[in-house]
Design a protein around this nucleic acid. Structure first.
Length: 969
RNA sequence: GCUCAAGUGGCGGAAUUGGUAGACGCGUCGGAUUCAAAAUCCGAUUCUUCGGAGUGUGGGUUCGAUUCCCACCUUGAGUACCA
């Protein structure tokens, strides 16, 4: 009987589906284990062999954990809202709901044929109303919350209103230490109680965890939407690579910055790779230092200008004795005596006010010039030093010396206060700026040469020329400087974070609508009982270049507060019928909490986003596998939402993902033909020499293993054969040789390998084994279809070990010592490999085991049945089939993992002396807990053995701490 | 620039806490089987001037280093005027 993998795989996939083999239960005596994959965007291109890599790994682990006696939750779903789904719909000219539905069908078919042990009864789709009802609900909870730093948690906004009523918002009187916008107005309880309702709502927006504010956002005209910082790579959009510009828009934002410290601290408690934690740390960007206030030396022009501008309106009246203040943030308060100038960002609010009439023209020209530069230009050109003097001076807080105030675009408006105290001897950028504009560079470091460059290191240096800081190191001087600044009331210790609040509005159709309507321009939440607010039908869902959201085209998109229903726009009357929010939520909204939704079976999903019982039972994800591209997006936002939900006691966990593994990308090998410039002739690779050619991607299926191109096939290709119809191909040695390059697997590079073809030709088990065999899970590795014959051959050998020409070969024969040795060696290795996620090496282990057992002519069921259990996480179909042929009922999936018995390996671990490099070496494994006396005794005993065996006496005995004893002869 | 990861045959990659480097697979070569091919099976496969040399380079620790330490080079990933 032959190994008919196609029949076997179809048979068992059907069996699992019919018997609900992998349905998880929310109550069990077994310990729970939650294995999760990052759910896919159902894009139109379908899956290529790179996509299932992580799913195969997590599936192996999930199946292994079932064998190990765990109640395993291993669900799957679709992240079906968002840009990729919508872009595809736009390209194909169909409604995103339709394309999403078809794409999901394709994905499901492709996933099913690989034989994953997903519990599909818990599937989620972020674009289904029953799901996004709860995304909207979480949004409302965020709106109804503020963040309290005293208790370090989010709280109900009602508590804040209560404090405002009683004490106002002055930190001193109210005791408030909360997250809020910059430059908030200070008011008393009386003020608050006298404010109009609108005014009160406006103020509360400055405290809510999701808030509406006019902010400068990253606008992508080509995509017709704003993007979050993590959606921009090198100044262009992550999706599509379109240019991004800065634009002021009123947008919903998430106050993630309130959680900066907790997001940072939480990293210590989770088992993620160091590199991933590091990128989150960098993204959060904590820096500890001080804020320092510089007083501006006031001139009469400035005072006039102040009255005109009403700058710093919330501070005391400005006069010569109460000057304007410029606040800066520095990580080096110890270098305060090295300040020789200040630099403001061109966008700084005081620039206009302090500029002297003589400098006005220069300053205005400079501001105009910088505002014209795009983000990309600014990034590309960091070397050019530019800036201009404002004519104004500030006063050094200690020396009282005048400090010239400059503006320069190397200072970013968005970080810190948008102003820096420049210490040219200690910061290279300040140094370069000072050199360029001939500003003095005072040296405040003892014995350091700063004639060539700044000395930026904090270590091994003492401060000099700095009054009371002389002779101190960085740590001491910083502390003292902060203390002295506090005495003067001109500064304090401060911690700054790079993490910005996340923009939460998208001018797109295919996303969650906000549960928000507007009364007199102020946002109002729709009550939970009327959710979900479903996406309205629109005629055209394409984005607009100008930024009008597509929902503006909906006819039925207004909120009736009497009936609490969505009604037609033309009824808006500003008393009972109000406009609804036109933006939709970003792609990361739905993916920030989906792992909780899986905890409840579809049938039981009721009046909660997941029941308390389910949440308490499954807690959080034990193992999460996915790509590292989500490091500063999804993985950060999810942590933020989970912490928030914990604060408001909706969930019980502080972190969503206990352990996280990033699978590496599978790369494709692209093929190129070379068109000679200005012609329609294509040169074979060896003929290019120094001719000017343009490399053009061609589909890899027209290239064989020897890099030879099938020209006829290419010319007859339905998709792009036209381009090559009249082309002339110049051959070398009778063939056309293509160029090769390993790149990311992508449809546009024509290098994708479809898992459907692999499954058809070799079977899902071969695909699964081969994907694991390619290399370490976390590494990027090129795909090479030719290599699959190795693992496919292994499965055929495995089959032949169990089934012969005339039927089953397995019997009740007593296993030989060698049989047991092979089995137990394999158990030990495979178990270790799975626990360490070294799936690639266990595939080798299986190959060795089957070769050995074949050579041993093993037929013993006692050995061959446990071997199937070991292999079943990797190759579930063939093992199910053989397991049932051995006469067993039911699925192999729940059979206990074989127990390792070291006694079968004893013989192999018996130590023999080995001659090495002319020296005699003897390695002896001893238990860790052996006493020193016992070690010596054992060594003595072995010395005799060695002497007998080798005829020599060891000269030296080395006892290495631990368990290995070396004896050198 | 900074941070992190990694450099081992023709290729993907093994090698436990420092202990026979190159497991396993691909590819290549040779053989068996076949009228022939596919498939299958068996053998060889780091380099070598046959003394040896060898895990990016140069040092160090050690009886012993792919593994640990220092410096450098290269590649990849992330981040980027963050004060």
């Amino acid at each position: 009987m032959q190994y008919h993998f196609n029949d076997i795989e179809a048979k068992w996939q059907k069996y699992w589906a019919e018997n609900q083999t992998f349905k998880a239960s929310n109550s069990s005596d077994k310990p729970k284990y939650y294995v999760l994959d990052m759910f896919p965007y159902p894009s139109g291109a379908g899956l290529h062999v790179g996509h299932p890599l992580g799913y195969i790994a997590s599936d192996i682990y999930a199946r292994y954990k079932r064998h190990k006696g765990f109640n395993v939750l291993h669900p799957q779903g679709y992240d079906s809202f968002g840009l990729p789904a919508e872009q595809y719909a736009i390209q194909t000219g169909q409604h995103p709901a339709i394309t999403t539905e078809t794409n999901i069908k394709t994905y499901r078919r492709q996933l099913d044929q690989i034989g994953f042990s997903f519990d599909w009864s818990r599937e989620v789709r972020t674009s289904s109303p029953e799901y996004y009802k709860w995304t909207q609900w979480i949004f409302i909870q965020l709106f109804e919350s503020y963040y309290c730093f005293n208790d370090n948690k989010a709280k109900d906004i009602k508590e804040l209103i209560y404090v405002f009523k009683l004490n106002g918002n002055c930190p001193k009187e109210s005791g408030l230490n909360v997250a809020c916008d910059d430059n908030i107005e200070i008011f008393s309880a009386d003020d608050w109680n006298g404010f109009s309702s609108e005014k009160q709502q406006e103020i509360l927006l400055q405290y809510r965890l999701t808030y509406l504010a006019e902010t400068e956002v990253n606008w992508c005209p080509a995509l017709g939407t704003v993007l979050a910082n993590d959606e921009i790579v090198n100044g262009v959009s992550e999706r599509g690579g379109h240019p991004v510009i800065r634009k002021k828009m009123t947008q919903w934002s998430m106050r993630i910055s309130a959680y900066a410290e907790r997001l940072l601290q939480g990293l210590e408690t989770i088992d993620w790779t160091e590199s991933l934690k590091e990128s989150q740390r960098n993204w959060i960007g904590k820096s500890v230092g001080a804020s320092v206030t510089f007083n501006v030396k006031m001139t009469s022009e400035m005072l006039k200008q102040v009255q005109h501008d009403e700058v710093q309106s919330h501070s005391e009246l400005v006069s010569e004795s109460h000057p304007l203040k410029i606040e800066v943030f520095t990580t080096r308060p110890d270098t305060i005596f090295g300040v020789s100038f200040m630099t403001l960002a061109p966008e700084h609010e005081l620039v206009q006010t302090i500029t002297t009439p003589e400098q006005k023209a220069d300053v205005e020209a400079y501001i105009l010039a910088t505002s014209k530069r795009s983000e990309r230009d600014r990034m590309a050109d960091v070397k050019t030093i530019s800036g201009v003097f404002t004519g104004a001076y500030a006063e050094h807080p200690f020396s009282k010396k005048p400090i010239p105030i400059w503006i320069g675009d190397y200072v970013l408006a968005g970080y810190g206060t948008g102003a820096v105290m420049a210490v040219p001897c200690g910061d290279q950028r300040d140094y370069d700026f000072a050199k360029h504009f001939n500003i003095p560079i005072p040296n405040i470091f003892e014995g350091v040469d700063i004639s060539e460059e700044a000395y930026a290191s904090k270590d091994n240096v003492k401060i000099a020329n700095s009054d009371f800081l002389d002779g101190m190191n960085y740590k001491k001087a910083s502390k003292r400087a902060i203390f002295e600044l506090e005495q003067l009331g001109q500064g304090e210790g401060k911690t700054n974070y790079r993490l910005r609040d996340a923009v939460f509005s998208r001018q797109r159709y295919w996303g969650e609508p906000f549960p928000v309507y507007y009364v007199n321009g102020m946002p109002q939440m729709i009550d939970k009982q009327y959710l979900p607010i479903t996406l309205p039908e629109v005629e055209k869902y394409l984005p607009t270049e100008t930024g009008e959201p597509p929902l503006g085209r909906a006819d039925i998109w207004a909120w009736d507060t009497t009936t609490n229903t969505v009604v037609s726009n033309d009824k808006i009357n500003n008393t009972t019928i109000h406009p609804l929010e036109l933006n939709t939520m970003p792609g990361w909204a739905g993916s920030s909490w989906y792992f909780f939704r899986y905890m409840e079976e579809k049938a039981n999903r009721g009046e909660d986003f997941a029941s308390k019982d389910a949440l308490n039972y499954w807690e959080n994800v034990d193992l999460y596998i996915g790509g590292s591209e989500h490091a500063t997006g999804h993985l950060l936002y999810s942590r933020f939402w989970v912490k928030f939900l914990k604060d408001r006691e909706f969930v019980g966990v502080e972190e969503p993902f206990k352990k996280l593994i990033n699978q590496g990308m599978i790369l494709g090998t692209s093929a190129f033909v070379y068109r000679e410039d200005g012609t329609n002739t294509y040169l074979s690779k060896g003929l290019i020499n120094d001719k000017k050619v343009a490399p053009i991607h061609v589909k890899v299926q027209y290239v064989n293993a020897s890099d030879e191109l099938d020209i006829e096939g290419l010319k007859n290709d339905g998709e792009f054969g036209e381009d090559f119809k009249d082309a002339e191909f110049i051959l070398e040695d009778g063939v056309y040789k293509v160029g090769r390059e390993v790149e990311k697997m992508s449809k546009s590079k024509y290098n994708v390998v479809n898992p459907d073809n692999i499954c058809e030709q070799y079977g899902a088990d071969s695909l699964r084994l081969y994907e694991m065999f390619l290399g370490p899970l976390e590494q990027a590795k090129p795909w090479n279809t030719a290599g699959i014959t190795g693992v496919h051959g292994f499965l055929k050998k495995l089959w032949k070990l169990y089934v012969g020409e005339d039927g089953l070969l397995v019997n009740d024969a007593t296993p030989t010592k060698d049989n047991l040795k092979t089995l137990h060696k394999t158990i030990k290795k495979v178990e270790e490999d799975i626990e360490n996620f070294s799936f690639n090496t266990s595939v080798s282990t299986f190959m060795i085991a089957v070769n050995e057992l074949t050579a041993q002519k093993c037929t013993s069921k006692e050995v061959l049945q446990p071997l199937l259990v070991l292999l079943s996480p990797y190759a579930p179909h063939i093992t199910e089939e053989l397991y049932s042929q051995l006469g067993n009922e039911g699925s192999i999936a729940t059979v206990a993992f074989p127990k390792f018995d070291a006694s079968h390996l004893v013989e192999s671990s018996k130590n023999y002396p080995i001659s090495f490099n002319g020296k005699m070496r003897f390695t002896l494994e001893l238990p860790m807990d052996m006493s020193k006396d016992d070690i010596e005794k054992t060594v003595m005993a072995h010395e005799k053995t060695i002497a007998q065996l080798d005829g020599r006496t060891p000269k030296k005995v080395i006892i290495v701490p631990g368990k290995i004893v070396n004896i050198v002869g």
